[in-house]
Nucleic acid binder design. Structure first.
Lengths: 81, 81
DNA sequence: TTGTGACTTCTAGTCCGTT
DNA sequence: AAACGGACTAGAAGTCACA
């Protein structure tokens, strides 16, 4: 047997991708630009862009800021749909 | 906003507290020490201790590492019970 | 409007300890 | 076993110019 993704969840950094997908989805639902989301949560526009492209290892405090701005609970941003 | 050490329940970083509670609960369910959890997820035992005391702003990649070690999905660590 | 690389500042995270 | 401290290094935060 091989240890390839045999656990309940995969072994890599897949939650970054889930987070990115959810942020983009919720932001576009509101028809917000990255700049507007950045303004709403007090983060720089380019920081949002990096997170949406999975180019940054974001911290839990900033996840909470973005979740609050988007009107969801932080855990919902990490949950794949 | 940036050098807040740790004031639990202060406006803002409540998800840190939820995360901490969940990690402690799941770790103790397994009867693991902080050192053992640290070993299982490849993080230092003192860092686990800080996270459990809400004294560190952990990144999403490390949330995923801890979740994997505890056998749950990352979003479950952020969900208050 | 968004993507990206690069840069500085400051904290995350490690490792050595003691209480 | 866990809290806490000091001193370090790795890396996230935050910003910018430009594509």
């Amino acid at each position: 047997m091989r240890n390839v993704i045999s656990s309940p969840q995969s072994a890599g950094f897949t939650v970054r991708a889930i987070l990115a997908t959810n942020i983009v989805m919720l932001r576009e639902q509101k028809e917000w630009s990255q700049e507007m989301l950045g303004f709403e949560c007090g983060l720089h526009r380019t920081f949002i862009a990096h997170v949406e492209r999975q180019a940054r290892n974001i911290s839990i405090d900033n996840i909470e800021k973005i979740a609050t701005a988007l009107g969801v609970e932080p855990y919902q941003l990490l949950k794949s749909t």
